[in-house]
Design a protein around this nucleic acid. Structure first.
Length: 114
DNA sequence: GTTTTGACGTAGC
DNA sequence: CGCTACGCCAAAA
């Protein structure tokens, strides 16, 4: 049997982030809320910090303002922005352009894990 | 079991 | 526009 049933909170976060379509972004709060832990938005970000950036498209996750709050964790202050722009997401002043239109709500395309 | 930390969110100034 | 303060919650020490 494949262990597709995540049981760790971090694992749940990774699963959701991996489902983010290219050129789309979502927020920590949205992921947390989708996982049933509305107030654990900080934990979502921390989970990405300890995650492998090469395996998790963490650059598609920004804060509620569309701000690249975690850009500093990609090994450079501009790496995250470059990644997003390379996927078609324009970024200006560390903020996603037309964020509202780029926003990808997990609960809108995914069903509650479990 | 208590304390600290954190890629957040909202509110106030 | 930037800072402070508070809330809220999970992982790590």
């Amino acid at each position: 049997m494949t262990k597709l049933a995540p049981k760790d909170f971090y694992h749940l976060i990774y699963e959701v982030v991996l489902q983010i379509p290219e050129g789309r972004v979502t927020s920590y709060g949205a992921i947390a809320s989708f996982l049933g832990a509305k107030g654990s938005s900080r934990t979502v970000g921390y989970a990405l910090t300890v995650s492998k950036k090469g395996e998790i498209p963490a650059h598609r996750v920004v804060n509620r303002n569309g701000l690249l709050s975690g850009k500093h964790h990609f090994g450079g202050p501009d790496v995250m922005q470059q990644l997003l722009e390379s996927e078609g997401v324009k970024v200006e002043k560390d903020q996603v352009v037309d964020f509202k239109n780029r926003f990808w709500d997990p609960s809108q395309f995914l069903q509650p894990l479990g």
